[in-house]
Amino acid sequence: MLVLSATCIAILSVMALALARALKADTVYDRILGVNMFGTKTALFIALMGFLSGRPDFLDIAIVYALINFLGMIAVLRFFEYTAGDENQEQEK
């Protein structure tokens, strides 16, 4: 139980660091990297939390969170792959 709590705290601090990276970033890709890391760690954290509270039903939520995180990441990247290039070209002009 102690180990589970310790791992939970470690994952939480990793999530905090990833959010800090996303807030304090140079480029937009650094922000996306931080948010992506936050999302994958959240899925892990939900799974850990289910074991910590003795209710493994939380795993379904973790699966759904992992799915939504991946889809959202691909959608955001699709968006930025085209708009960021356009902005650069406009700046060059």
Partner: peptide, 25 residues
């Protein structure tokens, strides 16, 4: 969860790197 994450996380980082490269980084 493990298999899904192992399949998707390389895809996400590849898409991220590719779009950063196309964005001119």
């Amino acid at each position: 969860i493990l298999i899904f994450m192992l399949l998707t996380s390389p895809t996400a980082s590849h898409a991220l790197a590719k779009s950063a490269r196309h964005g001119g980084l």
